[in-house]
Design a protein around this nucleic acid. Structure first.
Lengths: 212, 212
DNA sequence: GTAATAATACCACTTTGGGGGTATTAAAGC
DNA sequence: GCTTTAATACCCCCAAAGTGGTATTATTAC
């Protein structure tokens, strides 16, 4: 019997999931919580094999929960269970060490397979996610999108994030404690690397490609 | 026994809901579909008391389903069951004749109460929704993000789309066969409506809010 | 018939963005 | 040691964005 902790802010979804699994499935949702902050307490009380984790939650989001688990020293396989199929979320959660990624429009047999695999420390990706990753890696015209992104430095991604918030050159400079000239240089380098004509296109591209 | 049809694109949610109700609840989810277009066929085959309807779905959204039901001459109480608490959605569905509105982060007893009320042709609004409506009426239009979007005209959305592609004022003007001055006026009005400081923030906001 | 809205267009002005350079420093790779 | 890369910073210049107005016309709403 695989013991699962479900973290999802939608109570109804949680209750539904809980009553969906019977002894025959070999899977039991032993606990449901809507607040990620409660996870450490729960893990100390209960024996858990797999964590089923949603991304968009009010108190602390899925990414935050992954960081929390790492900082607290918990080493449990995490299966992301979410409605988001955007590359941005997939990439972020995998970077944080998620063992698998499945969508809420999956079927029960698919979820069972995913939980079983993840409990054995195998990776699971929903077929739709695989396609998404494939498209992502294949990228745009001629050049590889993933490579373009890899060419960006951490600082450059930081700059993009600031610009996306509507900050202008001066605001970014003040926020990062650097000169306006430097911000300008960074922006220029970024646009050159990504092949965008202006900041507006840079933002669109960055969001589409999951850079920010 | 209240017989319910659930329309939701997330298979897992549907299966969970189905197994959540037992005979004791006096409620049975007799059918789950992920495609709103199948509703007329289902209603002709099965006896249904209440329709539980999600809003965001790929083939046809909740608003579209409401229209479909009306056009086909079906008169069944509809309870909206969705994650969206934005006034935009609440208002639209109520305009189309929804009998109630409940959120996915409600509890099972709340849902049971909602289904019972709606089946008796009484209205049901989740407490959080009531607050939302109260805020809306108190703050007037344009008081939250979702309503800001409704204030945009079709032309303005078209302009945003062009800007997101990296087109500058002149390029947009040429594409839409209008003057650069007009584009500038539109952009200004859009930024004023959405409360953004510059084009970069405008793009971020528009993508996040699903305007483009 | 009047009020409100959407789409159009213009003027004048200031600020910011975007393109061309060049250069120094520290860290990382070979 | 030498080279490469990332991050920093400055110069000049012009185009574009952004801000303050005003205004006409057609359509929709009441």
């Amino acid at each position: 019997m695989i013991k699962v902790l479900l973290v999802d802010d939608h109570q109804l979804f949680g209750e539904g999931m809980r009553s969906m699994f019977t002894a025959e499935d070999g899977i039991a949702i032993v606990k449901v919580t809507t607040n990620g902050h409660q996870i450490p307490t729960i893990l100390k009380d209960l024996e858990i094999d797999v964590i089923l984790l949603d991304i968009s939650m009010p108190q602390i989001d899925g990414i935050g929960v992954m960081e929390l688990l790492k900082n607290e020293g918990f080493d449990l396989p995490v299966l992301m269970l979410t409605m988001h199929k955007e590359m941005k979320y997939i990439r972020r959660t995998l970077e944080k060490g998620a063992q698998g990624y499945i969508l809420k429009d999956a079927s029960k047999p698919e979820l069972v397979e995913a939980i079983q695999k993840v409990s054995r420390r195998e990776n699971y990706f929903h077929p739709k996610i695989n396609n998404q990753i494939f498209d992502y890696l294949r990228g745009g015209k001629g050049s590889n999108a993933a490579d373009l992104i890899n060419e960006l430095s951490e600082r450059e991604i930081e700059i993009i994030g600031c610009l996306a918030k509507g900050m202008n050159g001066r605001a970014v400079a003040e926020a990062l404690f650097i000169s306006e000239h430097t911000v300008k240089t960074h922006r220029r380098n970024i646009m050159h690397k990504l092949g965008t004509k202006n900041t507006a296109e840079l933002i669109t591209f960055s969001i589409e490609q999951g850079i920010i």
